[in-house]
Design a protein around this nucleic acid. Structure first.
Lengths: 192, 192
DNA sequence: ACAGGTCTAGACCAATCGGTCTAGCCTGCA
DNA sequence: TGCAGGCTAGACCGATTGGTCTAGACCTGT
């Protein structure tokens, strides 16, 4: 565990922002959680809280893209990969704590004054959808249907995470996986 | 327009909380928006900001249940009602302004310190799902499938709203309606 | 041994936060 | 006409906010 000071700050910020949102966490709380003084923060993130939030969001975005690829890499078909993805997310939800929100929305939905946040969130979401669309195509969907499947997976993930958070129960996401993409013996269910 | 002072406060608070979240809005900003002094707030809401947020959430919850019933009342079948609902939500999203988040999550996801918020959000979500499930049953779904349809509608709504907010484009929700519940000439697509 | 840059440490600042409190307006009743 | 209570109005409070600034620890190349 040889995390750099910069990563320690981004990690602590990500964890706290996901629980309470951008405005809900003070710099002092982040600093205390990371065990670092204020001077370090403004050395690594000259623009302060905004820079820190952007780095925290980028951090969790990279992790999410990794999880998506992991879930679909060895999938039989798109529904199989989507089910795996929701299970992985349920696990992540448990590890992070049941008050945790979607990394991106929790950090980057801070209001109209923060336009750069809004742009970034749209960029990250598009990135996830594109990524899942590519997996759908690779796994046999025709291009038009693949995009629809990619978007459906995104919405299911967002909606499931939100409900899981309110109920504080990761099983919401697991059940949702089988409801949305029922297991069948057929191989062609992705485009059915 | 003979809104009571209490309703003026709840309405102004709801609008601002939806944009910036519970922690993102100060009391002074709400008061300025409502055109009222601080004394009025603490007269009508003795517990201050928390009471105000709960009332704002209850306010938008009541409105949402009304919209749901409106959408399904004259529907041919569940998919028809769900499509109508997403169109109504898209309209509402435009009226409120494209930075607006889901009323409940924006107001009530304020972190672990506010347990009462978390409980309320779970209650409201469950209420919506139950309500949509009832409509699904009424419109011909068998009970088990009806619950699945109700949950699916909820997740689609949440996910769609989130993406619409990031993109600042209400059409996301409209397109999603037809992707998730394609129009067919068949009457039995609800359980297909 | 010393110089120079990188980074840590935390005191300090004005502004804003949620919340309290008192003064007085305004209305209904006697 | 006077009084009582619901409500408005806003000054004021300590605590906390994001952000700035200086002092010095530490490391590296010469």
């Amino acid at each position: 565990m040889t995390m750099t000071t910069r990563d320690k700050l981004a990690w602590a910020a990500a964890k706290l922002f996901q629980e309470k949102g951008f405005h809900g966490v003070g710099l002092n709380e982040i600093l205390a959680s990371a065990g670092l003084p204020k001077g370090s923060l403004y050395h690594h993130f000259p623009n302060g809280k905004v820079d820190l939030a952007l780095e925290a969001a980028a951090f969790t975005h990279r992790e999410t893209t990794r999880i998506i690829d992991d879930a679909f890499r060895d999938a039989r078909d798109f529904p199989d990969g989507a089910r795996t993805l929701l299970h992985k997310m349920a696990k992540m939800f448990e590890i992070m704590g049941s008050y945790t929100g979607c990394p991106i929305t929790s950090i980057l939905f801070a209001g109209p004054e923060y336009e750069v946040f809004c742009e970034k969130s749209a960029e990250y979401f598009e990135c996830w959808i594109t990524q899942m669309t590519a997996h759908a195509e690779r796994l046999g969907c025709d291009p038009v249907q693949a995009r629809v499947e990619g978007e459906k997976a995104f919405h299911t993930l967002q909606g499931g995470w939100t409900l899981a958070r309110a109920r504080r129960d990761s099983d919401v996401m697991r059940n949702l996986a089988y409801q949305t993409w029922p297991e069948t013996t057929s191989v062609a269910q992705a485009t059915a």
